[in-house]
Design a binder for these strands. Structure first.
Lengths: 339, 339
DNA sequence: ATGAAAGCGCTAACAG
DNA sequence: CTGTTAGCGCTTTCAT
């Protein structure tokens, strides 16, 4: 860790030039088998490890990628981390964590890191481009950037995502099929892509079933436990209470269920609740949450694989991947009361 | 992102040498104000960003640190990530994610990355040293490594942790104070530091209260929901059922509560349950879980700060920090039934 | 199949 | 205050 043997040392020890060492160590075919063995031995006994800074400078690449999320504390990302990390590792890349906390300035820092050569590519899960990058990235292909989970409307960056609208539709349809007619929705933060799509799915399902959506049933939250609770309380202070709730994520669903319990309602006997994401503990929760499950680890893996393809100059790589979701029907939904 | 202005370009444009540019850009005091301005302008108009690979090579440091955990998918780490990331960012460092999946070989890879110069330091939350590093790191101070959460017995590496034993003692004491006498424990994987300490706390509290711990009450799990469920089921198949459970982490506690519900027991009326960690959702769970809360974000922050001190050659830095925990008494614990 | 030499882009003596 | 110069450790022409 301190004295680091360098390529020169090996060269001397093996009685060859540094060039040959470099070639031998990278399995170049133009090194005699005998020499190669000698060099390997020398490297082993000197416990040689190539200096990555030097290699990076010379090769003009860093072998790291940036994984940028809105909020590292969101448990939703865990499996995605895993998928990304696994795919990256398999290809010899390291993963740098980026956390924007929804701050565009912080997002810009990560784009700058890309320019600095700090990372070779980036997986973006923030749904936004910093102002000054919008034009730069807007129309161009082959930027080493993959967007995951979200979609950035102003760009045609390669992306991997799910059909939020269809999945939400399906979730609401499930409630409708159970006989529910008064179904309320609490969405994510509102001018955002993911929240909008999920809400669209809700509205479409309601419309297709000929069910009304009073303004009071169409609420805007922010994916937090807190708004799940508060908006649920608000919802149940009206005369025309809903019999079912569709929340744009599980965390809000947990908040809502908590609040309902506090208000004296039973889930699902009095009120059915559907979430979205199927995060850790959604199944262990009481009652086990009916929710939309998405292949998070695969989203991570695919995103990283697309990025690797981009970095490898593979143009044949698909520029947009849509992964399937699955409605997990569990115990938080049931038939409409009084039927 | 493609054409990258270099220091030479600025030098030419500002009519100075590259050395002066370098100095000006790093706010060296020995540059005339006028020159500095000229250089700054040039850098701005050329949209210059220093190449980190070159800088790293020259400076022999990478400005990144490695954060190595047992399992990225564990929600427990989330706030720690945040603390580490924030402290690192504040100091201009990036954080590389390392995931060992409890595999010593993978752990070794990360140690190698340190030698490679891939990272300048490392925060280790795996509780183990790869075989071949044990001697190397064993006795030495001032290695750029900080151990968090765990303690590595064979070394005196700087560390930040909590008093697992005392916290567990306190949790079990809480149950005893409620009148419970038949208290069982499900520990984490067993020859491990953290699990052992928590179990010791349990055993000590029981011993101090003169309560017996039949072998059947002293179970070994693995921190997973699944073992929480299974061992709980096993526990309640005995004649002498416990009236309270102390689980070594929240996840197992959730599993146990689930199982109890399935077996027809009510928490806390029939059985009280205490967890450990106070992870995301422990409060939103039903019933809200009584558990030991540890300052996770601070653990991350402190660990990073210690690492920065080490990297800065600050010998005055404390080599061991113990952070306080807090027993959160919530609704999963209550008086012993029939009292 | 191997070696000599150039150079990736930057910083830091050293010399003025 | 500023310029010249010498590398950091590696890979890769270009010769041989």
């Amino acid at each position: 860790m301190t004295d680091r043997a360098k390529i020169k040392d090996i060269a001397r020890r093996a009685g060859v030039s540094t060039a040959t060492v470099s070639r031998a160590l990278s399995d170049s075919s133009l090194v005699a088998e005998a020499t190669r063995e000698r060099i390997r031995d020398a490297a082993r006994t000197l416990d040689y490890r190539p200096n990555v800074a030097a290699r990076n400078l010379r090769m003009q690449r860093s072998m790291s990628v940036l994984l940028v999320v809105r909020d590292v504390c969101n448990p939703f990302y865990l499996d995605i981390f895993k998928g990304v990390e696994a795919a990256a590792r398999a290809a010899g890349y390291s993963v740098l964590m980026g956390n924007t906390e929804n701050d565009p300035d912080r997002a810009r820092e990560y784009f700058d890191m890309l320019r600095d050569g700090h990372a070779d590519g980036m997986i973006l899960m923030t749904g936004m481009l910093p102002q000054d990058y919008e034009q730069i990235l807007g129309g161009s292909k082959a930027r080493p950037i993959v967007v995951a989970l979200e979609l950035i409307e102003s760009s045609d960056l390669p992306n991997v995502h799910i059909d939020n609208r269809a999945a939400a539709y399906r979730a609401v349809k499930h409630l409708i099929d159970l006989g529910h007619q008064r179904i309320a929705h609490i969405s994510g933060p509102m001018p955002e892509f993911m929240s909008s799509r999920r809400r669209e799915g809700y509205l479409a399902a309601m419309a297709d079933a000929g069910l009304p959506v009073p303004a009071a049933y169409d609420l805007t939250g922010d994916y937090s436990l807190r708004t799940g609770r508060e908006l649920c309380r608000q919802l149940f202070s009206y005369r025309d209470r809903p019999t079912a709730l569709f929340l744009a994520n599980d965390e809000m669903a947990f908040g809502a269920i908590n609040e309902l319990r506090q208000l004296g309602f039973t889930v699902p006997d009095d009120v059915s609740v559907v979430g979205f994401d199927d995060i850790f503990l959604s199944e262990a929760f009481y009652p086990p949450l009916t929710t939309v499950s998405q292949p998070r680890e695969e989203i991570g893996r695919r995103a990283m694989e697309m990025l690797l393809a981009l970095l490898g100059g593979n143009d044949a790589a698909p520029s947009s991947v849509e992964l399937p979701t699955c409605l997990k029907v569990r115990a938080s939904t049931g038939p409409v009361p009084g039927r």
